[in-house]
Design a binder for these strands. Sequence first.
DNA 1: TTTTAATTCTACCTTTAAGTAGTAATTAAA
DNA 2: TTTAATTACTACTTAAAGGTAGAATTAAAA
Lengths: 137, 137
Amino acid sequence: MKLNNTSQYAIRILAYIADHKEKTLFSATELSNELSIPYKFLTKIMTELVKADFIESIRGREGGFKLKKDASEIKVDDILNIFNDSIKDEECILGIGFCNGMCKCALHDQWMEPKLLMQRMFRESSLRDIAGKGCKI
Amino acid sequence: MKLNNTSQYAIRILAYIADHKEKTLFSATELSNELSIPYKFLTKIMTELVKADFIESIRGREGGFKLKKDASEIKVDDILNIFNDSIKDEECILGIGFCNGMCKCALHDQWMEPKLLMQRMFRESSLRDIAGKGCKI
DNA sequence: TTTTAATTCTACCTTTAAGTAGTAATTAAA
DNA sequence: TTTAATTACTACTTAAAGGTAGAATTAAAA
Ligand code: SF4
Ligand code: SF4
């Protein structure tokens, strides 16, 4: 009942970048150190964030990464979608049925509310909203 | 953002048994067929439910499984605990901090509400509550 | 007593997530 | 132009979840 590691890392990386507006460029080494994310794993994630067009990369010496969109335009849910980790509408707590209310599973009624809350949390929170919120992100 | 397969299976198995009060004994073959759970995987899970004392097993020909406790005494959360899949108090949506409010992660405030709702859903729902709720469990 | 239908035990296989290693490509500074 | 610092690419390794196979054990029925 949790986000996978890759998603957690990606959110923390983007939130960190959005949070430090005074800087313009962030190297993989800095991000790895500051966020305690294994360097090699982080670079792999960065590549995906670049492909997803959330991050722009500058290659070569003095290069690095920076946000490609405004922080208010990147929702947490967009990040989760890259890693196929967002909460699908048809996602069922017991893994049967289709969450369409036609054929309910035993926990359906109790599951709808937290599910919707989580979907809203992810869909409505932008990087701008969460940047600066963590005390040691 | 979902329960693991084993937990889902275990809940559905126990709910099925609790739901069919007219029967006294359920064989692994029946449970496997009715619930579409791979036979060999199901027997593995049954063994754990027996060890956890939720299920009593009768070995040998004409044997099978039955509930060992009253359905109202088994909470969904108890089942999740067997497979280390319940939502811990200190569980953080971003995998940092300790959810103690001292050092918040960026999504802390928005995470508390769905988290508590899910904990309550699992802790307060007994087999008795959910048995008979599913249309094709 | 033998057979048969059931659970239990031990061990293995497969898939996916997580993480690591090495090298190539790029580019600015020296 | 060389060097150093950086991202990008390809491939491998490890750990955990999910699933499978087969033989051992049990006990009722035939
Ligand atoms: S009962 Fe509800 S939660 Fe469960 S599978 Fe069906 S639609 Fe999804
Ligand atoms: S900020 Fe809150 S949710 Fe996030 S890790 Fe800390 S305690 Fe957990």
